[in-house]
């Protein structure tokens, strides 16, 4: 189920998703229409533009909240021309997983898009790599990230994007055990409390990177 006020983009996205084997069951021009449709016939994932009519502000997040309140099982993928840290934090705080936040550019990378949509549908959290790269690259005074090894920094970035240990292991061609060791080391070095779930971990890491 899609909602975006830019028809061209929406149509193109629908066609590509269909080609990739997704079943697009509805397309809408604004958040309210999507919320009504999702309530009537809940999809696995709703893909929404963050900035939509009428206010072109954060209607996407409001619509996502409404859908989550009515039908908690629906995965929510927010797309935007910009990725903003405070939106990411808001999504991580207000939604307990099953939510994604990607730059619109990302949808042209089709297999990535497909994988991320499936993760969101499965209750995972997805944060755009651009945002994470920006946060990790951020200049800090006596940078705590300097205490991490390069490998640990790479693991931290994937954690911030919502990847589970298994996903991190396959991304970096490591064993799950090695990844777990890195994660523990990161949490100790940064003095963070590890979350019991991947989603909690995303929030903790994002907050840390933002601080």
């Amino acid at each position: 189920m899609l909602a975006d006020d830019a028809i061209l983009f929406r149509e193109g996205l629908a066609r590509i998703l269909t080609d990739m084997g997704f079943d697009v069951i509805g397309q809408y021009g604004d958040g309210d229409a999507l919320v009504r449709a999702a309530r009537a016939d809940p999809p696995d994932v709703a893909v929404l533009d963050l900035r939509m009519p009428p206010g072109f502000a954060d209607e996407g997040i409001e619509a996502a909240r409404a859908i989550r309140a009515a039908t908690p099982a629906v995965g929510l993928m927010l797309l935007s021309q910009y990725v903003e840290i405070h939106h990411a934090l808001r999504l991580a705080t207000e939604f307990d997983g099953g939510v994604g936040y990607l730059l619109k550019d990302r949808v042209s990378d089709l297999h990535v898009l497909g994988a991320e949509l499936r993760r969101v549908a499965g209750g995972g959290t997805v944060i755009d790599p651009d945002l994470v790269v920006r946060l990790v690259a951020r200049r800090r005074e006596d940078d705590p990230l300097g205490r991490l090894t390069d490998r640990e920094r790479a693991v931290l970035a994937l954690m911030a994007r919502g990847h589970s240990n298994t996903a991190i292991a396959s991304d970096l061609f490591l064993s799950v055990k090695t990844v777990e060791a890195h994660v523990t080391s990161i949490f100790v070095k940064l003095d963070l409390t590890p979350g019991d779930r991947d989603h909690r971990r995303v929030l903790a890491v994002l907050r840390f990177l933002r601080a």
């Binding site: 983009f9 193109g12 080609d19 021309q81 619109k104 042209s108």
Partner: peptide
């Protein structure tokens, strides 16, 4: 921006 992203999506496809 929307148009470019759409074209990029088509190119990706």
């Amino acid at each position: 921006q929307q148009r470019l992203v759409t074209v990029a999506m088509e190119l990706g496809a």
